[in-house]
Amino acid sequence: MEDIKSVDLFVSGRLCLFGEHTDWAGEHKGRSESIVEGRTIVVGTQEGLFATAKPLKEKVLRITTTDNHGEKTGPAEFTLEPSELLAVARSGGFFSYVAGTAYRLCVAHELEGGLELNNHTTTLPMSKGLSSSAAICVMVARAFNRVYNLRLSTRGEMEFAYLGEITTPSKCGRMDQACAYGSVPVLMTFDGDILTVDRLQLAVPLHLVLVDLKASKDTTTILKCLQQAYPHPASDLHEGLHRLLGPINHRITSEALQAMATGDVSQLGRLMVAAQQLFDQLAGPLCPEQLTAPVLHKVLSYPAIQELVWGGKGVGSQGDGTAQLLCRGSEEQAKVCAILSADLGLECMPLTVTTPRHGDHK
Rank of each mutant, 00 (worst) to 15 (best):
E289R: 12
G284P: 04
Q290Y: 01
R328T: 15
Q306F: 10
Q277F: 08
L278D: 13
L282K: 01
L300M: 09
A334H: 00
V273S: 01
Y302H: 14
G321D: 10
L268N: 05
C287L: 06
G314T: 13
P285Y: 08
K335Q: 15
Q333Y: 03
W310C: 00
L257P: 12
A261E: 15
V315N: 06
C327L: 00
P294T: 00
E331Y: 11
E332Q: 13
Q276P: 03
V295H: 01
A323N: 08
P285C: 02
Q333M: 13
L257S: 10
Q333V: 07
R270M: 08
S301H: 13
L296I: 11
A334F: 06
E332R: 00
D280L: 02
K313G: 06
D280F: 02
S330I: 15
L278A: 11
D264Y: 04
S317E: 13
S254H: 06
G329N: 15
R328G: 09
G263E: 03
G329W: 10
P303M: 09
G269R: 00
G263K: 02
F279M: 14
W310F: 08
A256K: 07
G314Y: 05
G321I: 08
L300N: 04
V265E: 11
Q277K: 14
G316M: 00
C287G: 05
I305G: 12
V315I: 09
R251E: 15
V299G: 09
L271M: 04
V315G: 06
Q290L: 02
G284S: 07
A283E: 05
Y302Q: 02
E332K: 03
L278Q: 15
L325V: 10
M260R: 00
K313D: 09
G312N: 14
C287H: 09
H250M: 07
G321P: 11
S266W: 07
A275E: 14
Q258P: 04
G284W: 04
P294Q: 03
G321M: 11
L326Q: 12
G316Y: 02
Y302L: 01
V299C: 10
S317K: 06
K335G: 02
Q277L: 11
Q324D: 03
I305D: 12
G314Q: 08
Q324I: 15
P288T: 04
Q318S: 07
T262G: 05
S301W: 07
K335H: 02
Q281W: 03
V315H: 02
L300Y: 12
L296G: 10
F279E: 02
Y302E: 04
R328Q: 15
D280I: 00
D320C: 06
L257W: 12
E307P: 04
E255K: 06
E307V: 11
S266V: 04
C287I: 09
L326I: 10
L308T: 09
A283G: 01
